[in-house]
Design a protein around this nucleic acid. Structure first.
Lengths: 146, 146
DNA sequence: TTATTTGCAAAGACTTTGCCAAAGA
DNA sequence: TCTTTGGCAAAGTCTTTGCAAATAA
C-alpha cells in the first residue's frame, strides 16, 4: 500500500516522507504539509499560503506552487480543477471519494465512492485503458426543505 | 424536454435558438455554433476560434469567449475544466456521458453513463442536494496490449 | 434609429520560471 | 562544500473587460 500524508501526522513523518522521496527537508515544505494535513476543506494555493505563513512567515507563492507540484508528483496530494475557480488541493489520505460542490457557496462535501471507483475501472478497461486517477464532481444546490 | 444544439443542425435552427433566447443573430455567433456543432472532439477556445474563422475570418478571441459564456448560460454547451489545460467545450446534444482523458496524448473518449448519473443523483439526494451537473473524468493510459 | 454586439488592446487572475542568495546534507 | 531550494520579480497562459465603431432589429 502506498504511503500517504495522514491527518495530524507528526513533523517527523513529514520529514520522513520527504527524505524517502530523496528531497531535502525544509521548513517551508513541512509547513505546507502540516497545513494540508490540518485542512478540513480543499484549500486553494492562496489559502494554503496564508495558513502556512502562520507556521513560517517567509513562505512565498512560488514556493507553495513548487511544493504543491512536488507533492502531487509524489502522489501525496491531489489537485482539483473546478469551474471558474483556482485549483484546490487535498491530501490523498482517505478512501477514494467524489465531491459535491455547492454552487451557492462553493463549499465541497465529500462522499465515499468505492463502488463508483470499481465501475470506473471497468469502464476504462472496456475501452482499453488503465485508470490513473478519477475525478467525480457533482455540481448541486441544497434542496429546499419540505 | 430542453432544446439543444444538435449535430449538423441547420443555420436556421441556430438563428432560432438565438432569437428564442432574445439574442441577436450575428455571423460570429452562428459561426461559433456551427463550429461546435461540427466538432467531434472537445475543442478549446483557441481551437474554436481557428475553426470559426474559416466561416467568418473576423472573429476575435473576445467574441469567442463571450459567446461561449452566453451559450453555457443558455445550457446549450458545457465547459470542461481539465488539469493543466485550457477549458474545453462540448455541446449538450447527447446523453449524459463521462470522459476518459488519455494522459499520453490528451485525447478524450466519451462513454455513456446513464447508470452513473442515476447513482450521482441518489448520492446527492442522500446529502440533501439537487444535481445541477455532473462531471466524470477518468484520467488513464492505454493498456499495453497482450 | 437605437440598443446590442464586436474587435482591439489592455487588464486581470492564476501559475510558472530565471536568477542569485540561502540553506540542508 | 556542494547541490538543492527559496524569494523575488518578471514572464507566461488563459480569460475578461472598457471603449469606440459596427451592426441587427
Amino acid at each position: 500500500m502506498t504511503r500517504g500524508i495522514e491527518t495530524h501526522e507528526t513533523l517527523d513523518t513529514f520529514a520522513e516522507l520527504l527524505r524517502d522521496a530523496g528531497l531535502r527537508v525544509t521548513n517551508q515544505r513541512v509547513a505546507i504539509m502540516r497545513t494540508l494535513s490540518g485542512a478540513e476543506d480543499h484549500p486553494t494555493a492562496e489559502e494554503i499560503t496564508g495558513k502556512a505563513r502562520e507556521l513560517d512567515s517567509t513562505i512565498s507563492f512560488a514556493t507553495v506552487y513548487r511544493t504543491l507540484s512536488v507533492l502531487e508528483e509524489l502522489g501525496l496530494i491531489r489537485k482539483l480543477s473546478l469551474e471558474n475557480s483556482p485549483a484546490r488541493y487535498e491530501l490523498c489520505d482517505s478512501e477514494d471519494h467524489g465531491h459535491i460542490v455547492d454552487l451557492d457557496d462553493g463549499s465541497i462535501v465529500e462522499f465515499e465512492d468505492g463502488a463508483l471507483t470499481a465501475r470506473y475501472e471497468a469502464i476504462a478497461a472496456d475501452h482499453g485503458f488503465e485508470v490513473v486517477r478519477c475525478v467525480t464532481i457533482i455540481e448541486a444546490r441544497k434542496k429546499k426543505s419540505g
